[in-house]
Every structure is written in C-alpha cells, then in structure tokens.
Nucleic acid binder design. Structure first.
Length: 310
DNA sequence: AATACGGGGTA
DNA sequence: TACCCAGTATT
C-alpha cells in the first residue's frame, strides 16, 4: 500500500484491510472483486491483485521466504519492499532505499547529479546506503533513515538545525541541501475525455475495464461518450479535472438521451454495467468518479430518468 | 532507459 | 500549478 502512497493516506485502508484479512491464509481465499473493493480509491490497483497473489504463492511455498532475494521472487515485490520486509522482519542486512532515503543520502553526500528519474537516483545511491547500513540491526536502521527523511530531512524547509546528521552532511556544509536531490520529472501530457450521463430504468450506465487491462482493471468509471455514440450532445452538465500519473485529464459530462442498449459498441475494450443507486455503493469505482457521481446524483437522480434533460 | 500506473497532500 | 509520496512492471 505504501508504494508511492503517503502513509497518512494508507492508514485507514490498512486498518480496514487487516481487519478483513489479518494474515496470508485468509487473504489467499479472497476474490479479486473483494480485494479491489477494499483498495477502491487508493490507486495503482495492480498492487491489490499482486498482494493477493503474494498470499497465494506464500501459502503454497514449501520454504517460506526470509531473505530479500527470496522475497524478490514475489509479484509486486521489488528491491525496496523486499529489503524492507527482509531487514525488518528477518534481520537480513539489506538497505531499503525509498524516496525518503534518496533525499537523505543525496544531501548527505551532496550528490550533484541531475537524475532522469527516481529510479536512476536509487541505482546511484544504493551502494552508499548499503555501506552505511547497521548490519546488527538493519530493520531499525532502515526505518530510521526513512523516518529521518519523512520528519526532519523534508523536501521543503528541512530541519537541519535539529538533524542528528548535520555535522556529517555535505549538503548542509555547502548550503544547498534544500536543492537536492535533482531529479527531472517526466513531462505531463494533456488529455480530454468526454463522458456520458446515461440513465435507463433508474440505472446509470458505467464502463468497466476488464481484468486484463493495464489501467484500472476491474474498476468502473462513467462511460466515454465516443464508445457510445457517433454524435455528441451539446450541453455539458459537469466537468472535472484530475491528474493521473503523468497525465492531466480534463473530463466533461453530457447527458446522452439515446437509451437504446443495442447501440452500445460491444467491440470496445470495456464492459458495460448498469447500476441502480442502491448498487452504486457496492460497485468498485475510481476515487474521483465516485465523488463526482455522488455529487451529480443530487441534481440528476436516477429515478427521474431522462426527464431532467431540459 | 523511458514510460505507465492513481490519487491525494502540500507549498 | 508543480512536486512528490515507505515503487514496480512493462516497453
């Protein structure tokens, strides 16, 4: 859950998840639908399915993994997560290098490199992290490094005056610690999406990305208008802006009066789902669309069908 | 080596 | 708005 997601965001999801599946044995029996529902709104949905797959693989394993190298064989477990699990739980002396540690180390050694990605910074600084690691207590050391980055060696306005590493910090000595690390960001691309508010018999039409989809697999959103109709209604009833990874998406919503279900394009890569207002709470939606729909229902209740067109 | 993958917090 | 978060897998 914590991969690329802030701890405070994770906390309520973690509590709910652990209450539902306290161990791998129970998680191994969960369905993909249940897992996606519990992950709803957290993003990066492939993490949920991979975590469930980890539970299945772990339960089937003769020898349970105890080293970072062994954990690396599991889906969704990369160098960071493998090192975190193995060092904290099994005392495997492997440095866990996340965004926090990159920041601490790049300032500590005053790394002047201009990295093209966080990944390249990890590659460059991992040897230094491994050199500094306390082999007697790698778990505490790794957590201390991350905690230092999260609470003291922060991105903006780091608390250098109370930092226990101040006297060792080359970045502080040179006075440009807050400019480090230097990592180039990927370009943000713009995308416009036209969506449809399509209601029939008290049910709202949604599109669902299929299980194999790379993006939002198993998650529903309001349907893209182009998948439904050749001609686009004029009136925009709502609009939404949001960021998704390296994309900025501007979405507009229009009422689609054509209700002939046979007009749905069946060859498109999404599945069509009609949901009543009651079923909506049981439906896995992307976070932004759940909020969007909840707001829209106030002005466009499903029971009124298309009467609100005017 | 780049890029895709969500969503939210923060200055 | 722009950056970044207890990254990983795919292209």
């Amino acid at each position: 859950m914590c991969q690329q997601t802030q701890i405070v965001t994770v906390l309520p999801y973690f509590a709910q998840w652990m209450a539902q599946w306290p161990d791998f044995e129970s998680l191994a029996t969960a369905t993909e639908e249940q897992v996606l529902a519990a992950w709803q709104g957290l993003g990066y949905y492939s993490r949920a399915k991979r975590l469930q797959a980890v539970a299945v693989q772990w339960c089937a394993a003769e020898l349970k993994p105890q080293t970072a190298a062994a954990w690396l064989e599991y889906p969704g477990i990369g160098p960071y997560t493998a090192a975190a699990i193995a060092s904290i739980h099994f005392r495997d002396p492997v440095a866990a290098v996340d965004g926090n540690v990159i920041r601490v180390l790049s300032r500590l050694v005053a790394a002047e490199d201009i990295f093209n990605s966080q990944q390249s910074a990890v590659t460059k600084l991992t040897p230094e992290a491994q050199r500094l690691l306390d082999h007697d207590d790698p778990g505490t050391h790794n957590q201390a490094m991350m905690e230092l980055g999260a609470l003291v060696c922060t991105k903006a306005k780091p608390s250098c005056l109370m930092c226990p590493l101040q006297s060792y910090c080359r970045g502080f000595a040179l006075g440009h610690q807050d400019k480090l690390p230097r990592i180039l960001r990927a370009a943000i691309t713009e995308r416009a999406v036209n969506r449809a508010w399509c209601v029939s018999n008290g049910r709202l039409l949604l599109q669902r990305y299929p299980a194999g989809s790379r993006r939002l697999a198993g998650v529903c959103e309001l349907p893209e208008l182009e998948r439904l109709s050749e001609k686009m209604p004029d009136a925009v009833i709502a609009s939404l802006q949001r960021g998704i990874s390296n994309e900025r998406i501007r979405e507009t919503l229009r009422v689609l009066p054509v209700l002939d279900a046979t007009k749905l394009h069946l060859e498109t890569e999404v599945e069509w789902v009609w949901v009543s207002e009651a079923e909506l709470s049981q439906t896995t939606l992307s976070g932004p669309h759940r909020k969007w729909i909840e707001n829209l229902l106030k002005d466009y209740p499903l029971c009124l069908n298309q009467a609100y067109q005017k």
